[in-house]
């Protein structure tokens, strides 16, 4: 019976036409698959490239917000208004930076958190001067940030904010100072003060502003000496251009323009 079964099944064979049709379909399917794989690879490459570009754009700073009381803190902001780096200056600044979670927050949330943090709030309670400087790398964004911060500090007497030109504060970090504190340090030197960068770093913003006011012969600014009152040597420019970015050096020899609270 075995031989009969084998012989019977041997008569069943795949026709040449069936094999030819199948081969054609198989080749078509293989070609389609290759095309799909190529397209998939291309799409994956495009996605990777887009991610790399987006990552690079995300990591590119467009503004820096320097918040100085003493402690001093800098928030680096990207074009998506997100904080991409936080730097503290001197020990208290570093401690403040380490105590707050500010990365990837919007700059508005980050500034609010810093200003409302116990360390900064305690300084303000003591009458220290809060100075917020916006270093504009992207003019449109800088103006927008300044507008927001001006609105935030509008109700605070011993606070000011201003736009600062990056070129004028380029060597701030080399001296271990934040942009905002460096700007005031330069102004003190221009007014004839003989202060070292290290001394400036150790002084509060209130003390620096008081020294500057003294050198310029004006009234003492709100500071750690209890002057307060929201008036300072920079106050001439406070009424103009809230939210606009004035040019460096327009304000009586200063490199920026303040918008005072109060």
């Amino acid at each position: 019976m075995e031989h009969e079964i084998v012989r019977a099944f041997q008569t069943v064979r795949a026709e040449e036409s069936l094999k030819a049709d199948t081969l054609e379909r198989v080749l078509e399917a293989a070609a389609r698959r290759r095309r799909r794989r190529r397209l998939g690879a291309l799409a994956a490459a495009c996605c990777c490239l887009a991610l790399v570009v987006l990552g690079a754009v995300y990591r590119t700073p467009t503004s820096v917000i320097s918040i100085d009381v003493n402690p001093s803190l800098e928030l680096t902001v990207n074009r998506f208004d997100r904080v991409i780096a936080v730097s503290g200056y001197q020990e208290d600044g570093e401690a403040l930076a380490a105590s707050l979670r500010l990365l990837h927050l919007s700059y508005a949330q980050a500034v609010d958190r810093v200003v409302e943090s116990p360390a900064v709030a305690a300084c303000l309670e003591r009458g220290e001067w809060l100075s917020i400087s916006v270093v504009e790398l992207d003019a449109d964004q800088g103006a927008e940030i300044l507008r927001y911060i001006s609105a935030c500090t509008a109700g605070t007497e011993n606070a000011s904010c201003r736009a600062v030109d990056q070129a004028s504060v380029a060597c701030a970090h080399d001296l271990g100072l934040s942009y905002g504190k460096y700007q005031t340090y330069v102004e003190i030197q221009a007014a004839g003060g003989s202060l070292t960068a290290q001394e400036a770093g150790e002084m509060t913003m209130g003390q620096l502003r008081a020294l500057l006011a003294e050198l310029e012969g004006g009234p003492a600014a709100g500071n750690g000496q209890g002057a307060g009152g929201g008036q300072s040597a920079d106050s001439q420019g406070s009424a103009s251009g809230q939210g606009s970015i004035p040019q460096t050096g327009q304000n009586g020899g200063h490199h920026g323009q303040d918008h005072h609270g109060g």
Binding site: A14, L18, D21, T22, L23, R25, V26, A29, A30, R33
Partner: peptide, 11 residues
């Protein structure tokens, strides 16, 4: 089915 099997084999 003949064609399906060989397609599966290819893929």
């Amino acid at each position: 089915i003949f064609q399906t099997v060989f397609l599966k084999y290819t893929l």
